[in-house]
Amino acid sequence: MTFNWRRYASPPHCYRLISRILPALWAISLLLGVAGLLTGLLLAPGDVQQGEGYRIIFIHVPASWMSMIIYLAIALWAAVGLVLNTSLSFMLMTALAPTGAAMTALSLLSGALWGKPMWGAWWVWDARLTSELILLFLYLALLALRAAIDDPRRADRACALFALFSVINIPIIYFSVRWWNTLHQGPSITMGQAPAMSDQVLLGLVLMTLAAWAYSLAMSFSRLRLLILQRQADTGWVKQLTGACR
């Protein structure tokens, strides 16, 4: 017996699959979020230079990472949708955007809350901060573009092209602290190097990052279910499903 993964490109199959895994994803995100916050706020030691104010990183760093990862995922699904012409890819792209925008806003706001006590300013026109602000505008532009076009297929293609062109901002955000002389600190964790932080801080960061991943997946999949129902409203299986729910 072989596993036919292509059948999950079909909206009804995908709907059933994500309906099965969603409760587990929500539970995992809640458990990891609570464990991460407890580790970061209760157990992790204070920082020698930044005192207790550094604890904002347990919110700020996972939100910043997710803001970039979600935009990369949007661009990936946009490319898959344009190449294979699969409606589910465009729906995934659509479902990810609001959570990406929320993560970007959270990254900027928590960054401002860290900047005021550490730098003495809520905002500076630093390369990292400015490119992250541009990312928020890109998310908002993507949402606005989607809402502005009535025909879903045309909206899908327009948003996919926009996402593919604008994804260039992600490497700019990531490498901004290396390419320019910025006030923002360098990467917190880099590949191939031991992290310069205590085990409890690292554990808190890892837990919060995994929680952010699980939350983003759970929220996007929940939104995807609605999009599938909406787009397939005229099909028999949706009528059967909604009839069964009465």
């Binding site: 904002i56 919110i59 939100a63």
Partner: peptide, 29 residues
């Protein structure tokens, strides 16, 4: 714990913002 060494306002505001974001998205959904 609440005072966070004088950074309580900033740290708890960041936590509150994160919770607000989650609640806002859940309500919208």
């Amino acid at each position: 714990f609440m005072a966070m060494g004088g950074y309580g306002f900033y740290v708890w505001s960041a936590v509150a913002l994160a919770l607000l974001m989650v609640l806002g998205e859940l309500c919208w959904l």
